[in-house]
């Protein structure tokens, strides 16, 4: 929750009323807005997770899990120019 009281103490009395309305507005809508954000984030997180699942499927399909040893050796070979 946003604490408005500490702010209002130092402010001009006229502004206090304004801040009070703001506060009530925030509190009323906070839950609803939080909900919206969470739904949005959940959909987003699921999409991200689905993206990774798709990446995993692609990796399996392209045979990257068929040989899990040789590539680790191959990557250490020095590149040499192919022309002699």
């Amino acid at each position: 929750m946003i604490n408005v009281t500490t702010v209002s103490d130092k402010c001009h009395p006229d502004q206090n009323a304004h801040l009070a309305t703001l506060q009530s507005y925030f509190e009323k809508n906070l839950k609803e807005r939080l909900m919206n954000i969470i739904f949005f984030l959940i959909v987003l997180s699921l999409l991200v997770a689905l993206g990774f699942l798709a990446a995993f499927f692609w990796a399996v399909r392209s045979g990257q899990y068929d040989d899990d040893y040789t590539p680790s050796v191959r990557m250490l070979f020095d590149d040499e120019s192919k022309t002699e």
Binding site: L53, F56, G63, D66
Partner: peptide, 23 residues
């Protein structure tokens, strides 16, 4: 023909497990 069904099954189960736990 390499049978990769098992990898898919495991991947799906892991994916669903993680996300259901989160939810």
């Amino acid at each position: 023909v390499v049978d990769r069904t098992f990898a898919y099954q495991l991947g799906i189960a892991g994916f669903a497990f993680g996300n259901i736990m989160l939810l």
